[in-house]
């Protein structure tokens, strides 16, 4: 390979994503289908911003990479928390320390940290909870007093509670009442005071959270999901409907314009 070919065009070392070979340092089963994977990835760790994701090449029968949010960064390591859904995440859950992963990152626009105010609240649902951890950490680091409201289906699905508790007041709800408060995150959010909302989870939850934030007159950011091809904005595969400033509909792209969007922009259908 000549040098000319190897050198990327964009010189900005920190915002330019890279393809990194990362060594798995730990894989832990959190519950039946939920796993935590830590990998040594110094090149990605310096780039990671809260709400960003990585695009992981999985083995087995998969062709496309799988997008997974960055849950936490410490030292030169990235922590991912994921749910086994199909072939890709199943393969990922079977990794062992010492295995290498081919990872693109860090990708997307994360949570905007300016304008969170003194008391931001982080609202997560199920497997949408992980990316909020790094965001809440960042909010705290900039002097805010963040809180978290985390919703899960049932007791066995609860993840990361102690990590969130260490960062601020954390309330957990379960749909079936088997743990924490019986009910949905929106039930709690309605009764809390906050200066901004950052949310990630199922679309129905995001929509309800966005409506409450709007009623409360505070800014709300939501992290969306869509099936991805390239993960970097080239294939236009991960479309999501957005409202233009003039009210018209357009398709933005979760991987490049998002995954975090201003809730006011999102067309909920």
């Amino acid at each position: 390979m000549t040098e000319e070919i190897a050198r990327p065009v964009t010189i900005d070392e920190i915002t330019c994503p890279v393809q990194a070979d990362c060594e798995v340092s730990a894989v832990k089963r959190l519950s039946e289908r939920l796993y935590e994977l830590v990998m040594t990835a110094p090149e990605l760790a310096v780039r990671a911003r809260p709400g960003q994701f990585v695009h992981v090449l999985c083995g087995g029968e998969t062709f496309l990479r799988r997008p997974i949010s960055i849950c936490d960064v410490s030292g030169g390591s990235l922590r991912l928390v994921f749910q086994v859904k199909g072939a890709g995440t199943a393969w990922l859950s079977e990794r062992a320390p010492g295995d290498m992963l081919d990872v693109l990152g860090t990708l997307g626009n994360g949570f905007r940290l300016s304008g969170l105010g003194a008391r931001p609240v982080f609202v997560g649902g199920g497997i949408g909870v992980p990316p909020l951890l790094l965001a809440m950490k960042a909010a705290r680091a900039q002097g805010a007093a963040p809180a978290a409201i985390l919703g899960f289906r049932s007791r066995s699905a609860v993840i990361l509670e102690s990590d969130f508790t260490a960062l601020g007041n954390t309330e957990v709800t379960t749909d079936d009442g088997s743990y924490g408060i019986h009910g949905f995150v929106t039930g709690l959010l309605e009764r809390r005071e906050y200066t901004s909302v950052c949310a990630c989870g199922p679309k129905g939850m995001l929509r309800a959270v966005a409506a409450l934030a709007e009623r409360a007159g505070v800014p709300c950011q939501v992290s969306l999901e869509e099936r991805m091809g390239c993960g970097i904005g080239a294939c236009l595969g991960c479309a999501c409907a957005l409202r233009d400033t003039d009210g018209g509909l357009r398709y933005g792209h979760v991987c490049k314009d998002g995954p975090v969007f201003d809730a006011k922009e999102v067309v909920w259908e």
Binding site: M228, C235, C238, R250
Partner: peptide, 23 residues
Amino acid sequence: RLGNPPPRIAETPAGMLNCVGLQ
């Protein structure tokens, strides 16, 4: 052109389907 609504991508054995719709 706006292109098609999501989902626009599906995985297949050793490949993928797309219906980006010329956005």
